[in-house]
Amino acid sequence: MLNAKVTAPGSGRIGVLIVNLGTPEATSYWPMRRYLKEFLSDPRVVETNRLLWWLILNGIILTTRPKRSGHAYEKIWNRELNESPLMTITRSQAERIGAQFRDDGRILVDWGMRYGLPPVGERLKALKERGCDRILVFPLYPQYSAATTATVADKVFETMEALRWQPALRFVPPYFAEPGHIAALAQSVRDHLKTLSFAPELIFASYHGLPESYVEAGDPYYGHCRQTTLLLREALGLPENRLQMVFQSRFGKAEWIKPYAQDMVADLPAKGVRNLVMIMPGFAADCVETLEEVAIGLKETFLEKGGVNFSTVPCLNDSDGSITMLTGLIRQELAGWL
């Protein structure tokens, strides 16, 4: 006779876990330090000698960068809810997607962050405890990179290692070339341009940067960004010289993939470009990189160099077009389970 409690079979529910990068809990020094330490300690994010990096991270970066990063977050902080816009938007995305499945009691939608709160592992366990014996994980990164998509998988599998009864897992693939994603991006550009009092001579599609060494090692990220840009350009009917790809958020002294957004934006006024629009197709939700680095920082650079008009297209966020597109991708992956 078994002395241990025999666990009953699962309820047959399916969990969907929406995952984004993460956010600090507050803009002050210690919350920023905790967040940055978790993020920058990930060997997928910083691929270098671990001992040397530990010394640099703990001896230099974590003593200086929390204050600077906190200042950036202060500029865009959601003061009403006392949280970052990324958390506000990701929560809303999950709630609105969950509403699309409300009539199907088998499907539960939750959300988590790879770094910071709420932790991916905690939300996976919560879905399992609610009877989900199958879980679809959706990393909200349109373009794949080991530094983003793969590290979500790492955390998911790390959580699974501690479970005796593991749910079946699936991941939504990168959606950089999905027709629904391209259509939603293109429509967001059209809608935004209608609100402007000027016509841009140029549109920059800006993506988060990545060290060149990562791409040389086999990371497909650069190719995915190029493909998204090409398809977006075609959807908008624009020539190559009207919609160009750039990369932002460079960190450290290594060579990163080019062209650099900061340099390109600074050079435009001297080349006769006075009106610029930027869109960030690699971000599913507005965050410090889009709201502070681009909408505030690069705007200041452009105007200081002689530019006249600058505007950013909001990320797809929790718009109707975004929710329709994300829900469609989820339904595609759930088809074999329903």
Rank of each mutant, 00 (worst) to 15 (best):
E74C: 12
L40I: 05
P220Y: 00
N309F: 01
I18D: 02
C315V: 08
A126S: 15
T63I: 07
Q248T: 09
Q143W: 08
P24T: 12
V294E: 02
G98H: 05
F157K: 01
R123P: 02
A261F: 01
L298Y: 13
W256S: 11
D42W: 08
N78F: 04
G307Q: 09
R123L: 05
L338C: 04
E333D: 10
R65W: 00
N241P: 01
V137G: 04
M280C: 15
L238A: 10
V45F: 05
L232Y: 04
V120K: 06
L303Y: 05
P139W: 01
L316A: 11
N78G: 07
E240C: 01
R242F: 03
A183C: 01
T64S: 12
P314I: 08
T301Y: 00
S145Y: 08
K258Y: 02
A177F: 03
E95W: 01
G70Y: 06
T27V: 15
T159Y: 01
T327E: 13
F198A: 09
G328R: 06
G321M: 05
Y260E: 10
R96N: 12
R331H: 10
G336H: 08
F302V: 11
E25R: 14
G306N: 08
T90R: 05
G15H: 11
V172M: 14
G328T: 08
L329K: 09
V6T: 15
T48N: 09
W256E: 10
G252Q: 11
C225N: 05
C287G: 12
T27P: 06
L268H: 11
R242D: 07
K37P: 01
S69A: 15
S84F: 05
G15E: 10
V277M: 11
R164F: 05
F310Q: 08
S11E: 14
A186R: 10
L326H: 04
L55A: 14
L316E: 07
L231W: 04
